[in-house]
Amino acid sequence: MTAAQADPQAEFSGMPEGLRIDRPEVADGAALWRIARDSETLDLNSSYSYLLWCRDFAGTTAVARDASGEPVGFITAYVRPERPRTLLVWQVAVDAAQRGRGLAGALLEGLTARVANERGLAAIETTITPGNTASERLFTSYAERHGAQVQQEVLFGTGLFPDGSHAPEVLYRIGPLSF
């Protein structure tokens, strides 16, 4: 592996100044939980789940750090077991002070470049609730930059959620990808 292959910043030049992409460490779990909570749009998982995520899925997760090393954004993702060349993006969150700088796009580019290099990658998937225009723009613009198609279908309808108040989750399948 070359230095450029190991360094997501070397693969994507759109990283906002003063920030860097890194793999998460377990100690980052609390910060990721706070960023997700403060987003006021994500389904907030337990703080325990963010700690586990940083331990068990660090290879498919990206954290943006400021100059002091503090997390200011993240993407959690995993490789689908039955589709080992498909990365499912679980959550994308950016600290309010960092929004509007292209950080989510830089994180997505850096993470997918890393996963493609380490494991091979043919597609990414994510779910988006209707009306989440920021996520819709993030993923459709990613597809455009990579010349990939976007297929959409409802993955989990409202009736599947036990509390009944959850909007449907629409699956966005982006591919085929080439790196």
Rank of each mutant, 00 (worst) to 15 (best):
S13K: 07
A116Y: 03
R20M: 03
L155Q: 09
S165V: 10
L52A: 12
T76Y: 05
L88V: 11
V63A: 02
A106M: 02
R173M: 14
S46Y: 11
Y172F: 13
V72Y: 01
G14M: 04
T129F: 00
I174P: 04
E136P: 06
F74A: 07
A67R: 11
Y78K: 09
A134R: 03
D163K: 08
L155W: 05
G100D: 04
Q152Y: 02
R65N: 07
V89S: 09
T41K: 08
F74M: 02
L111T: 01
E136H: 00
W90R: 03
V26M: 00
A116W: 07
N45I: 10
E125L: 06
D22S: 09
G157N: 04
I124R: 01
Q98Y: 01
V150A: 11
A116H: 00
L51A: 15
L32M: 14
L103V: 07
G159I: 10
R85K: 15
A30K: 05
L121T: 04
A67D: 13
G159F: 10
I21E: 01
F139V: 11
S141L: 05
E153M: 11
E17M: 09
F74R: 00
M1W: 11
S49A: 09
A6Q: 13
L19D: 03
N132R: 04
G59R: 01
G164D: 04
R34S: 10
L111F: 03
E17G: 13
A4Y: 05
I75N: 02
A96S: 10
G120Y: 09
A96D: 12
I128K: 02
T86Y: 08
